[in-house]
């Protein structure tokens, strides 16, 4: 059973993202939406945590949320995949369950 973890909080403001990473299992997927999109960027205080997660999990960012916050896709951490809403839907199909980290 694989789970899609949906995070919507900036890792610089709240612990939800960190908590998500602490509870996601190998083979799970993590999708950053809304304010969490800022966590997808490389060379931040948080990027090492994402890089560590990428070893056994898939990590995605919602492209619309990234762009809305002035961040281009060439800024995102290598290995993180940008998806649109259709891709978001596909992720909920590919995983058995979802959990939102509010």
């Amino acid at each position: 059973m694989a789970m899609l973890h949906i995070v919507n909080k900036s890792p610089f403001e709240r612990v939800a993202f960190e908590s998500c990473l602490n509870h996601a299992s190998a083979g799970d997927s993590i999708l950053m939406i809304e304010d969490a999109a800022v966590g997808a960027v490389k060379n931040t205080r948080f990027s090492e945590s994402i890089e560590a997660a990428l070893k056994d999990k898939s990590v995605y960012v919602l492209s619309g949320d990234l762009a809305a916050r002035g961040l281009s896709e060439d800024r995102i951490i290598t290995g993180v995949t940008a998806v649109d809403y259709a891709g978001f839907v596909d992720l909920t199909v590919d995983n058995d369950t979802t959990q939102s980290w509010l």
């Binding site: 919507n8 939406i33 809304e34």
Partner: peptide
């Protein structure tokens, strides 16, 4: 933003 996100998600899923 949650209601906006849910709307976009719902539209994409229905599509």
């Amino acid at each position: 933003q949650s209601s906006d996100t849910a709307l976009q998600f719902a539209r994409a899923a229905l599509e």
